[in-house]
Amino acid sequence: MSIVIENLSFTYGKKSPFEKKALSDVSFTVNDGEFVGIVGSTGSGKSTLIQHLNGLIKLTSGKITVDGIDLSARKPDLQKLRKKIGMLFQYPEYQLFAETVLADVKFGPKNFGAKDEEAEKMAEEAIKMVGLDFEEIKDRSPIDISGGQKRRVAVAGVLAYKPDILILDEPTAGLDPTGKRDMLDLISSLRSSGAVKTVIMVSHNMDEIAEYADRVIALSNGRLVSDSSTEEFFYDSDVESLNLALPHAVYITKKLAEKGIDLSAKPLSLSEFNEALRRKLSLGEGGAL
């Protein structure tokens, strides 16, 4: 269940006055079970890249193989591909359409060939998985529920057909702090419970990427400029030259190092940073903490 991308290039509006190169010569592999963060400033080609993975943009140059499905084939089996890769777009709640929450979540399974009864069961499971009260919400209109609930329903709509890989484009955009935290916790619990195997998340928020991703792929002007573990990416590469901010934990750790204080850890999140401080301080003060 791996994704192999080789020499992927893509140009919008080829041979027109609006020609724009979006991706050039991108190659990388995503292995089973990884949590990959894709970062890059606006216009760096992140969206174009993930749309390729789902066959939403026709492959024109390079090679993509998803679990043995070759997208450069003349007629790749897109339905099979899309069932494997669940894709959640930005503001996914704007795509809800059915009369009831249940009907909307069933849409995916039915498209992928499930019988009505089976689809209903899959939908029920998915709605419960995203932490919603199934009986309470199933017959309500997706237009009348709260913003946070809408987004959960949209996530359920993707989870319902049991994809192995989940691709998320800015899953926390527009949510308030609690909503953001809940969404990220949901994503990480989906992975730890085995509901999805692999997660690919696009985000502008470096703190989110640092805390949740195991590996970071960075794009700049359509080129892959970095592919490394999250720790290496934030601590050893020049993140700021990509027009991206450093996560708080990394920024402060680096600043302290400049001033000669070594935390002897490479924290990526608030809890890791607090932990590093606790260690450092208890050493300094004879275990006062």
Partner: peptide
């Protein structure tokens, strides 16, 4: 794009089926 990702298809079937397929958009 979002509905295609959920397995929707817009280009097969008869006229009625196609029209119905447009509802999610």
């Amino acid at each position: 794009m979002a509905q295609k990702a959920r397995g929707a298809h817009f280009d097969n079937g008869g006229l009625v089926k196609r029209a119905k397929a447009l509802l999610p958009v």
